[in-house]
Every structure is written in C-alpha cells, then in structure tokens.
Write a protein that binds this DNA or RNA. Structure first.
Lengths: 214, 214
DNA sequence: ATTAATGTACGAACTAGTGAGTTCACGTTA
DNA sequence: TAACGTGAACTCACTAGTTCGTACATTAAT
C-alpha cells in the first residue's frame, strides 16, 4: 500500500512498517491473552523485530496496549462510517443496520475480545486515551436519523431512545461472540453455528421492528 | 449458623470456616483482577489465614479459581431454582422471567465479571470442572414450558427456540453490566443509571412479547 | 560525522508454589 | 488423671522461575 522510500527488496529500516508489524502482532496477543496475560517478550518474538523496538516506538506495555485499542476502534469506526442506510425506508433501515452490526461483529472477534478485556479493566485505558475518550459513533448517528424518520412518519413508537436501541442491537451481536464459550460449555450449543445464523439474524431484525412498530 | 464444637469465642481451628473465608476473598480478587491478574499473595493477605493454607485446601491457584467458579454458578442456580412462573399466563410469565433475570444480574455483578473473565479464557476452567460442565439451568426449563404453553394456546409464534429466547434475555441483561465501562467511556452514559432502569426493564419485556406474539 | 534505528545481554522485582517445622484438640494408656 | 501419641490445621521463610524494562553496543542513512 504505502510506497517505501527505498526499493522493495531491502526494507530493513522502515519506521512505519516496523510499527505496523508490532501493532498487528500485539493486537493478536492482547486479544488472545488479555492485558495482564499478554507477554511483551512473546509479542517481540512473533515480530520481525526485537523487544527493544517495542519500547523504542511505544514506550511500554501499557502504551502499546492503548495503541492497539486505538487502532482497533478507529478501524471499526471507519468501517461503520461506510454503511449508508439513509435511502431506505425506516423499517428496512433498522433491519439493515442490525444485520450489518451482526455481520460486522462476527467478522471481528478480536475486537470483541479487546472490548471485553477492556471492560474487565473498567475501561481505564480507554479513559487514558485522548483518541478514544468520547469517540463519535457513525452507526449511532445513522440510527438516530432512522428513528426520527420512522417517528415522523407515525410508524415508530415515540418512547424510544437511539442509544437504547443501539444497546439492544449491540448486546445481541456482542453476546454471541463474547459469551460463546461459557454458553457452549453450559448449554452445549455453539452460538456461532452457521446453521442457526440466518435464523438469529432475522430474529434480531424481527424483534426490533415488532417492538418499534408496536 | 453451624454450631461449632468448641465455644463461640475461640474458633481458631475451623476447617470449614477457613475454606469459606478463602473462597470468599478469592471470589472478590478473581472477579476484580481476572484470573491472571489475581495474586495468590493478595488473597492470602486479605484472608484471616496464610497462603500456605490456600495450597493446603485447594491445591493451587487454578483449582482455587475453579472452586470459585463452581460456588458462584451453584449459588446463582440455586436462586434461579426458586423462581416459579408456572402459574402465570404465558405473556406474564415471559415478562416476569425476563424481569427476574434483569434484577438478578444487576444484583450479582461479580458473577457477571467472572463469566466474562472465563470467556476470555475460552471457558477452559469450566470445561475442567466436573461440577459445571453441562450444569442444568432451571430458568431455561421454566422458559421451555412457558413457550410451549403459549404456543399451544395459539398465542406465541411457532418458530421460537427456548435457547434463542434465553439468549436474547441474557444478552440484554448481561450487556448492561459486562460492557458498562466501555459504553460509558464511549457514549458517556451509565447503563446502570437508576433513572433509566425501569424503562430498560420494561423495554426488554415489551420487545419479547411483541416478538413472541407477532 | 551525526543521528536515527536496531540488536544483545542483563537485572531488579515479582510470583506461584514448597519444605520443614509448630501448635492444637483429642483419644489412649499407665 | 496426667503423661503421651497422633494427625489435622497452621506458620514462616525460602526458592525456582518469570517478566518488564534498560544499559550498552552496533549498524545504516543522510
């Protein structure tokens, strides 16, 4: 993607590439083991560079973790910004938004894990990040407009708050991934089973529409 | 409660009490810091006994953690077993069950945290526990009967699976607690705000009924 | 030549787990 | 009844191994 200043073959010294490499490996390690469980030495070993570079570029374990969080949130937000549901009827727009979130979360399990991990730590690292504290959410803005249109058309109930609806969608989509393992251990059912996927996806949309139009 | 063989004042040597004491402190520490973040020394210090006793009674950090999980799940299940909604109309029963779950989760944040933590670890400890692997769920049994009654009476849609409904209820109730911190950091809203509690509680019930009867 | 980038080796602090010995309650025996 | 034996419950100090972070040396680029 990015054109290196030097030729392709020998890119031994490449600040951006080294940083990106560290960040990618670190994301996997943190998502896999949690903040406390992650090992700086382990990250260093899986990188094409050394531990020294982690401290050189990021400063320390915690700052590296915050950088991982920032990158993950920004990437997700960038994807969300692309969804446009403005042109659809309110009902279809809600359903489409829910389904996009559904697909979206399923496609990014590492992000869900990072969020879970960050919640265990009471979001202390997000709070410490200037980038993330109060980061806007495009999906929520879209939802707000949809609900307003539906309400204006007299088709949606009037006592709904966008953030509450967002919460319902998120909770359903996040739960399937975040609680997958205990759910399977206790109930013996994999919530990500492809055979039940379509049913669950439609169920979420149905539920939202039934509620909003009741 | 339990009558000690010796007099009340000096119960220096009490196997059950020591074990229970360790387990209670350990529950707090694990729920607070996660499995990896929890420190055996810290648990020992907050206990009225010593670290050596933890190893004496439980064997090690991991076995102690599993014992904590087992106790937490059994306590929750015992509470759930008490709820009886058999006598209610299907609609009221569903709503009541959802509201009980709602209250229940809110009242046991440590349990929710332990579940989150266990999911980060891919439920490997639950899988290792003979007590927990495949533990029955009274709430789910109740729900199954309610849905059958509703369906038999021609009032509920026929394509609903009890476990899917359970999933909807759990996801909503768990999300409020489990993702409270990142949600607050990003959106600036505390999902446990008492002012919005009733609205959320009713919303969950409405959504379920609207969906089931549509 | 100067500086940015990188590699290696090491250390201070921490952490789970253990070795070895002590205290207490209680039953047995002289 | 008093000395003794016994095993469970308990204390303290220690160790082997890990983990984050850094001092110092080295290489490449301008």
């Amino acid at each position: 993607m990015a054109a290196p200043s030097s030729s392709d073959a020998e890119r031994q010294r490449d600040k951006d590439r080294t940083r990106a490499d560290i960040l990618e490996v670190a994301t996997r390690e943190f998502a896999d083991k949690g903040y406390t469980g992650a090992r700086v030495d382990e990250i260093a070993e899986r990188t094409s560079t050394t531990k020294r570079m982690i401290y050189y570029y990021f400063g320390g374990k915690e700052q590296l973790y915050i950088a991982v969080l920032e990158q993950a949130y920004l990437a997700i937000r960038a994807l969300e910004a692309e969804l446009d549901v403005e042109h659809l009827e309110p009902e279809d727009a809600v359903r489409r938004l829910a389904e996009l979130t559904f697909d979206h979360h399923e496609a990014h399990p590492d992000f869900i894990r990072l969020v879970s991990i960050e919640n265990i730590h009471r979001a202390e690292h997000i709070a410490r990040s200037e980038v993330l504290a109060g980061l806007a959410n495009p999906a929520l803005d879209g939802l707000t407009q949809i609900l307003e249109r539906g309400r204006a058309a007299g088709r949606f109930r009037t006592d709904v708050d966008p953030l509450d609806v967002h919460m319902v969608i998120s909770s359903f989509c996040v739960f399937r991934l975040a609680n997958r393992h205990t759910f399977a251990a206790i109930f013996g059912r994999d919530m990500l089973d492809p055979d039940r996927r379509e049913h669950q996806r439609r169920m979420l949309g149905d539920m939202l529409i039934d509620y909003l139009t009741s």
